[in-house]
Write a protein that binds this DNA or RNA. Structure first.
Length: 685
RNA sequence: GGGACCGUAGCUCAAUGGUUAGAGCAGGGGACUCAUAAUCCCUUGGUUGCAGGUUCGAAUCCUGCCGGUCCUACCA
């Protein structure tokens, strides 16, 4: 232990969206670990920041007609408020849009230059003359140069699978303005990661810094081939930092985002009179990153490569966790299971979620499931029924007398639990919170059994037994306090309440090793309320509506009775270029009835539909709606199809049309219906 | 189709290659009445996805199937 100190980071939330229950898995996991380390007396600093740069922010700010700085300031305030609400306690929370970050980017950049890791290449890119911006691949659509399929994104063709540059597209169109983009050459800068290949191979495969699944993944996916050069620049205009030695170029958001870890540390250092080198260029400092599995590549290859080249410390460990599902499914806005942090807090105590996540989290990167019924049962049963119940059934008996002056015989319960503390600590340290919670609940069971056997309520009735009553309650409250100490990283508020109840604050893990005696006992008040299922359901209901709430930019606005739709959907998929009525009439939309819906077992997304346009007029259509609709739901219903679409040969057969639907895909697909009265074959005008 | 991970009681999960595979919750039976209908005792529940193999010994290691999740190829 000695001099070693810990620097801990959680991934930087992007300034384009609010914190939801999925994000909180990571912040709660990290916060618990940090609180545990601090409680154990280790020097540990927890930093984070908002990730603020990039095209998405620039476009959004434009849409909202205000400067980026305003947008990201609002969002950061909302993020910090959400974190505070969940008792996530950073030592410093910064922003990637800071002076310190810019300084560090420059410093690291010049190191990369000196190490000869930067390559320059001219890249032909499409430029939108109306929006005045270069277009990322997904902002360009056009006809595939190989198979001539129209309406393809700029990186590859969804029909023939060919990959190409957006400049190869025939008749490209900007999805931002609808303008025809022009080709413009720009100088791009690349980090030649391949030059670090040998080092990264050794670092990732050493078994010391990554979970084994992650190391295997990298080996199989990336390290078997030469590592691709990383394009880390974006031409003007771009919301970010200008690259000093490359006019009109900005660092790509993924370049400056991880450097934000260092910048935030630096800001913390300035506040606390510490030296940055002591934290980022010091073997005695262990750096621990906590991230989700979606950003593995950046943190396990690109980031170590950059740090190594620039002479900063490498992470001691990159801890990667899985995603959150709700009731076994991906979070869904329409089902109300993508619950925003602020919505949760309106209905429920943050302790519930902290405990539930703790009881599910292990050191692996498995996804964890928030099953609503289990959530309610587990929290009520474990926290209220077992832990808090101990205080509830003993504290009132000693409100007047306080705790006994000497710790009485308890059959070895306290010392057993004290010894178990080491196993619990080890579980916390290894991020196996589920194991820690299991051990703690076993101890709670034993303590409840003790109450049962000693029956303080019987002792109370007999005046000659009042000394014994005080002894028994002293034991029970000490066992309760021990549990609170062990739960402090997860439930800091409960630890405080326990301190107030027994008039002795919990300040260190070692408090669990010595019984508390002779203190007064405060008047007992309920420490936690049970979860009422209605509240959980109300939260889900509100989350269903909240897709229509004003988004990100106006976080302080409360949900109102009249729906206010956010601009998110439009932002995800900007308007297509203007078309004429003639253009529109080229598309023949028809009402059709699904007369047969069939599974395509081998297909992951597709369902085979036989639709009728009335009379004998039927056709086969494949639709990518497998995840969103069951066969039964589809059978017989009316849909709107594109009836004059060029038939397309797909893997499982010929598709003679297209079913219209909205939504991003997956389970979030919503078929177009039609009001009753319409009949198959009618055209949509 | 390719790759990564996983499959243990109704549910969520334990179990360094080593007794008869265990907990919690749910279910069933009883007890208690201090406690937020909480708690305590007893109890039902398993071909460890399937089939082989290695081994004195396999939930664990190997091979092949089956099934699931994720990344990636088909949401005309």
């Amino acid at each position: 232990m000695s001099d070693r100190q810990l620097l801990v980071t959680a991934a930087l939330p992007y300034a384009n969206g609010h914190i939801h229950l999925g994000h909180l898995v990571e912040y709660i996991q990290t916060d618990i670990w940090v609180r545990f380390q601090k409680l154990r007396g280790r020097k540990c600093v927890f930093v984070c920041a908002d990730d603020t740069h990039g095209t998405a922010i620039m476009i959004r700010a434009r849409h909202e007609g205000r400067p980026e700085s305003e947008l990201i300031a609002d969002m950061q305030a909302a993020h910090e408020r959400d974190f505070r609400g969940f008792d996530i306690e950073f030592d410093h929370y910064g922003s990637t849009n800071s002076e310190e970050n810019y300084e560090l980017c420059k410093d690291i950049w010049s190191s990369l230059r000196q190490a000869n890791l930067i390559a320059e290449k001219d890249v032909e890119q499409l430029f939108d003359p109306v929006a005045g911006t270069f277009l990322a691949d997904r902002f360009v659509k056009g006809t595939c140069p190989h198979c001539k399929t129209p309406d393809q994104y700029g990186d590859n063709c969804s029909k023939c699978g060919e990959t190409y540059a957006p400049t190869d597209l025939i008749d490209p169109v900007s999805t931002l303005s609808g303008a025809t983009p022009v080709t413009k050459s720009a100088n791009h800068l690349f980090v030649q990661l391949e030059k670090q290949h040998e080092f990264l191979e050794q670092w990732t495969q050493s078994g010391e810094h990554l979970q084994t699944e992650v190391a295997n993944y990298l080996k199989g996916h990336f390290l078997g081939n030469p590592l691709r050069d990383w394009d880390v620049s974006r031409p003007d205009p771009y919301f970010g930092f200008a690259i000093p030695d490359s006019p009109n170029n900005y660092w790509y958001v993924w370049f400056d985002a991880p450097i934000g870890y260092i910048a935030s540390t630096w800001q913390w250092c300035k506040k606390n009179n510490e030296s940055l080198a002591d934290w980022w260029k010091n073997d005695q400092t262990e750096i621990h990153h906590f991230i989700g599995k979606d950003i593995t590549y950046f943190h396990t290859l690109f980031w170590p490569g950059v740090l190594k080249a620039a002479g900063y410390s490498l992470p001691k460990f990159v801890h990667i966790h899985g995603f959150l599902t709700v009731d076994g499914e991906k979070m869904s806005k329409s089902k109300g299971t993508q619950v925003q942090a602020s919505t949760y807090l309106k209905h429920l105590d943050p302790a519930f979620l902290r405990y539930f996540y703790a009881s599910k989290l292990g050191p692996k990167l498995d996804d964890i499931d928030l099953n609503i019924t289990e959530f309610i049962n587990k929290v009520n049963s474990d926290l209220v029924g077992k832990v808090v119940n101990l205080a509830s059934r003993s504290a009132r008996f000693v409100e007047t007398t306080g705790l006994a002056v000497e710790y009485p015989h308890d059959g070895g319960l306290f010392s057993t639990a004290a010894i178990a503390g080491e196993r619990i600590a080890q579980a916390y340290d290894e991020l196996d919170y589920a194991r820690a919670m299991r051990i703690i609940m076993e101890l709670a069971d034993q303590a409840n059994a003790y109450v049962e056997n000693t029956a303080p309520w019987t002792l109370k009735k007999d005046p000659t037994q009042h000394v014994r009553l005080q002894e028994v309650c002293t034991v029970v409250l000490n066992l309760f306090r021990q549990l609170c100490i062990y739960l402090t990283p997860v439930l800091p508020r409960l630890a405080n309440q326990c301190g107030q109840l027994l008039n002795a604050n919990i300040s260190s893990w070692s408090d669990s090793q010595t019984p508390l005696v002779g203190t007064t006992v405060s008047k007992f008040e309920h420490l936690l309320q049970r979860i009422a299922p209605e509240k959980v359901h109300a939260m889900i209901e509100e989350s269903k509506e909240s897709t229509q709430e004003p988004a990100a930019t106006t976080p302080t606005v409360e949900a109102s009775a009249t729906p206010v739709d956010s601009g998110d959907a439009l932002l995800q998929e900007p308007l297509a270029p203007t078309c004429t009525i003639e253009d529109f009439t080229k598309v023949d939309l028809r009402v059709a009835r699904i007369i047969k819906a069939e599974e395509v077992p081998e297909a992951k997304k597709l369902v085979k539909l036989t639709v009728s346009l009335g009379g004998d007029n039927t056709r086969t259509v494949f639709a990518g709606i497998k995840a969103a609709y069951s066969i039964e739901q589809l059978q017989g219903r009316l849909v709107v199809i594109v009836a004059n679409l060029l038939p397309r040969q797909m893997k499982f057969g010929l598709s003679e049309g297209m079913v219209t639907a909205a939504g991003p895909g997956g389970t979030e697909v919503f078929l177009l219906g039609i009001d009753s009265g319409a009949v198959p074959g009618q055209r949509v005008h």
